[in-house]
Structures are given as C-alpha cells and as structure tokens.
Design a protein around this nucleic acid. Structure first.
Length: 315
DNA sequence: AAGACGTGGGA
DNA sequence: TTCCCAAGTCT
C-alpha cells in the first residue's frame, strides 16, 4: 500500500484491510472484486490485484509462509526491489538495504550526488549497500526513511535538527534543499471525453467494469466515450437511447501522465429493465460495494449534486 | 529502457 | 491555484 503513497493516505485503508482480511489465507479466499472495491480511492490499482495474487500464491503454494530472502520475495507479484529488500530487513532481520524516495534524497544530500534521478539510482543503491549495518538493518532503513520524511524533507530540510548536519556534503555545498536533482518532467497532455450517468427509477446508477489491465484496470465506471484530444462530436457514445441532458460544468482530473476533462450527460427515471449487456445497477446510497476510482466518484457526484440533500461520498 | 500507472496533502 | 511528489512495479 505504501508504494508511492503517503502514510496518511494509506492509514485508513490499512486498518480496514487488516480488519476485513486478518490473515493471508483470508485475503486469498476473498473474491478479487471485493479487494478492488476495498482499494478504491488509493490509486495504482494493479497493486490491489498483485496483492491478492500474492496472497493466493503464498496461501496455496507456499503453505501460508512468506519467503524470507530478498531473491525469493522479489519473485512475488507486486514485490519489486524496494519491497523485497524492506521485507527482508524489517520482517526477517536480514542485512538488506532498501532504497525508497526518502533514502534517495537523504543519500543524495549526504554525499552531494549531483547526477539527476533516475540515472543516479545505481550510485545511490551502492551507497545504501555500503552504509547498511550487519545488525538491525531494518531499523537502520526505517530510521533513514523517517529522517527523510521528518527532517531531510524535499523543500526545506531542517538541517539544524539533523543528526548528520556536520557530515552532510550537500549542506556544506549549500545544495541540501535542492538535491536530489531530477530529469525534467514531461508536460502532461490533455484528453477529453463524455460520461453518461443513467439514473434508474429506483435511484440506481448504471455502471460497467473496465478491462482488468491498464488504466484503472478492473474498476467500475459509468459508461463513457473514449478519451481523446477533443470531446466527442455528438452523444453517440451513449449507452442507451434516452433523453440525456448535458450538465453544466466539467469534471477535471489529473492522472500521472495526462489530464482529463469530462463532459457529463445525465438521464433520470430509466426503467431498471433497460440495463444494456455488461452493465449493472448500483444503488446511489450503497456505492461502497463498488470499485469506483476517485475520478468516477467525481463524475457521479457532479451528476447528482443538484438532487442530493447531502454529499454522496463522505470522507 | 522509458513510459504507464492514481491520488491527496502540503507548500 | 498550481506544482510537487510520496515506504515503486511492471512491461
């Protein structure tokens, strides 16, 4: 869960997951659709699918016991170099040197590494390997991460309270607050589309499921057009023949590599029997059961703002 | 090997 | 408002 995600964002999800699926066997026994629903809102949804596949592999093929070496952990779905190393060091007390974004920043400053990321990653990994102690490597790694999160922060590091302030080459060179350098990020293109919110006579909304791989893989969404350079020329992408009304305003959402603008069309009072193939009705008052990513919650909230007493999605 | 892959919180 | 970026992984 913590891959590329802050502790604050993960907290409630972590608590809910462990309450609902306290053991690897329990998670392995869960339908993947339920796991996707429970993950909705956290982002990077392949992590949820990988976590579930990992639980099934451990429960079914490894007797419920996690492997305890970096190499064998690395073979699990969703477990890359960082996570394998972190588990080996923290859970199994092995000498391993996980390197996350915090540790990259701390090391780049401590040793004044001027090569920009991501090219500097191998050099930073080598420095981490040298530094990792034989004993309590897990505590060392977590201490480095906490230093990065609380003292050696990205913008304005609190060097006065840093235990390494006298040793820091970056600080000596006046580079502490600007390291690590990064390659320039690409400009994010804009894509546009139209979403169709169909409300039934029973206050349900029509949803379909996205393909399992790719963007928002396996998640629910209202029917919508493809996302392209321009809005669709007409409402041809509508899921059924009905008197859709185009709502004022747009739904905007930023993804990692592009920005999205969605027009929202709505129709109400549709007969429940009218659901097209591969769609299903979701009660507006019980959307928690569905795997709705944040952008899709925005669409539904936009389409129901005028007919709701209170917020549909409370946080 | 470079690009795909989400979201929310802080500055 | 806008930008940055976080306990990275997969293809």
């Amino acid at each position: 869960m913590l891959q590329q995600t802050t502790v604050a964002a993960v907290g409630p999800y972590y608590v809910a997951f462990l309450k609902r699926w306290p053991t690897v066997e329990a998670l392995a026994a869960a339908p993947v659709e339920e796991v996707m629903s429970a993950w909705a809102g956290l982002g990077y949804y392949s992590r949820a699918r990988n976590l579930h596949a990992c639980a099934r592999h451990v429960a079914h093929n490894l007797g419920g016991k996690f492997p305890d070496t970096e190499e064998s952990l690395r073979a699990l779905p969703g477990v890359g170099p960082y996570t394998a190393s972190a588990i080996a060091a923290i859970a199994f007390a092995k000498r391993a040197a996980p390197v996350d974004g915090n540790i990259e920043r701390v090391l780049a400053r401590l040793y004044a590494v001027r090569e920009p990321l991501p090219g500097a990653k191998p050099a930073l990994r080598a420095l981490a390997q040298e530094l990792a102690p034989k004993e309590r490597a897990g505590d060392f790694a977590q201490a480095m991460m906490d230093l990065g999160a609380m003292i050696c922060t990205p913008k304005a590091p609190d060097c006065a309270n840093c235990p390494w302030t006298e040793d820091c080459m970056g600080r000596a060179l006046g580079l502490a607050s600007v390291l690590p350098y990064r390659d320039a990020k690409a400009v994010r293109p804009l894509r546009r589309g139209a979403a169709f919110v169909v409300i039934s006579t029973d206050d349900e909304v029509l949803l379909r499921r996205r393909p399992p791989k790719g963007l928002l893989g396996g998640m629910h969404e209202p029917p919508m057009s493809a996302w392209e350079v321009d809005f669709p020329a007409n409402a041809r992408a509508a899921p059924l023949k009905a008197a859709f009304r185009k709502l004022p305003g747009l739904v905007r959402h930023g993804f990692t590599h592009f920005e999205l603008e969605l027009e929202v069309y709505r129709v109400e009072g549709v007969a429940t029997s009218a659901a097209p193939p591969a769609t299903e009705w979701a009660p507006l008052r019980d959307l928690k059961r569905f795997a709705l990513p944040t952008v899709m919650k925005k669409v539904i909230a936009h389409a129901t703002a005028d007919r709701d007493a209170g917020p549909l999605f409370k946080r």
